[in-house]
């Protein structure tokens, strides 16, 4: 499986993961973060709903970027923090960052809904300069710069992957 835009190929590509592996990865993490991007505002609500479910199941630190708080608050969910995606990445790449709660940096960063290109670039920063953490994307498009990524999928396929992930998390 190649990147959504094949030009983004590079020597180290993400491992494609199934909902099961994704669930396992999230479960095993000690201090995971879930980044919910601005696309949540413009895609069907159910995606945000799945995201919220996943975050709640593992009590993940939820960070809303780019204004996705609009959708999240519509769904009565209050993210832990509102911050710019780039600002967040800038924190994450610093292994000495204390995290939002002062408990130190996170070990797994889970992404959904950040626009592909800027998401890909942020993941590139983490891949190359943040060896201390792992990244996983639950987006519809394969993200070569993540450590683990869902494959490229149709919308329906995506919903199935997300619902299965919820199942495995429960």
């Amino acid at each position: 499986m190649s990147a959504w835009n094949p030009a983004l190929s590079s020597p180290n590509q993400a491992i494609i993961c199934s909902p099961k592996i994704a669930a396992l990865t999230i479960k095993q993490s000690k201090n995971p973060m879930f980044v919910m991007g601005s696309l949540l505002n413009v895609i069907p609500e159910e995606i945000a709903e799945y995201a919220i479910k996943i975050a709640k199941l593992k009590h993940m630190t939820v960070v809303s970027t780019g204004g996705s708080n609009i959708m999240l608050s519509k769904l009565n969910f209050k993210p832990h923090y509102n911050i710019g995606a780039v600002e967040l990445i800038n924190h994450l790449k610093d292994s000495n960052w204390n995290g939002f709660c002062g408990k130190g940096n996170y070990d797994l960063i889970c992404f959904i809904g950040v626009p592909y290109y800027i998401g890909s670039q942020g993941l590139s920063t983490l891949k190359n300069f943040a060896p201390h953490l792992k990244t996983i994307t639950l987006c519809k498009f394969m993200h070569p710069n993540a450590d683990l990524s869902y494959p490229n999928m149709s919308y329906d396929g995506w919903v199935i992957y997300l619902s299965k992930l919820v199942e495995y998390m429960e």
Binding site: G37, S38, N41, T65, G66, G67, I70, G84, A85, V86, V114, P115, I118
Partner: peptide, 13 residues
């Protein structure tokens, strides 16, 4: 110099 993810973020920034 900052890169905003969305129009929303741009407005605020």
């Amino acid at each position: 110099i900052y890169c905003a993810e969305s129009m929303n973020e741009c407005m605020a920034m």
